[in-house]
């Protein structure tokens, strides 16, 4: 069984923590990384050609295979063909991507790994107005890695 890295539009960076999570000491071969070029999804997200070229160009600098198709169908197909037992991806607030992850979880384990946080806080800030958030965030925002 193997792991598969699914990169989506929020995590196009080789140093994202999801790659560390994907390292499996039991396998000497690194997990494959894929990006699914999903035209219908991009249209739903209002991505124009400028953005699509920007994303494609960014992908070309990464060790990632690009496949065109519906995201869930393509990933499920790969999961079966390659015997994938875990899909590792980047955590996102985007509900459309979250619902894809939810759909995949019917048949495979999906781990969504958070990016390095901008600022760490002991308790969740109030998010009604920026300055309520900032009064809390500024305690660590000026520290390296956002924490003491």
């Amino acid at each position: 069984m193997s792991k598969l890295i699914w990169l989506h539009e929020d995590c196009l960076r080789a140093t994202h923590q999801l790659f560390t999570h994907a390292q499996d000491p039991a396998h000497d071969k690194a997990a494959n990384a894929v990006y699914i070029w999903d035209d219908a999804y991009m249209t739903k997200m209002h991505f124009g050609l400028k953005r699509r070229v920007f994303i494609y160009e960014s992908l070309c600098e990464l060790a990632v295979d690009i496949y065109a198709g519906d995201t869930i169908e393509t990933l499920k197909d790969m999961q079966h063909r390659l015997g994938v037992d875990e899909i590792i991806t980047g955590k996102t607030p985007n509900p459309a991507l979250k619902s894809m992850m939810h759909g995949l979880r019917e048949t495979v384990k999906v781990s969504a790994i958070a990016d390095a946080p901008f600022v760490q806080m002991d308790s969740p800030p109030e998010l009604r107005r920026f300055f309520k958030y900032w009064n809390k965030a500024k305690k660590n925002a000026f520290l390296y890695d956002g924490r003491p």
């Binding site: 960076r13 050609l49 400028k50 699509r52 070309c60």
Partner: peptide
Amino acid sequence: DRAALVAHVKTLSPLRADDGVSETRGGRA
């Protein structure tokens, strides 16, 4: 070259093929 990349992205985005492209380059570099 970049023009070839753009042409390829257009084939993957048939409905957007007539749009323009920015000079801003993608990627980590």
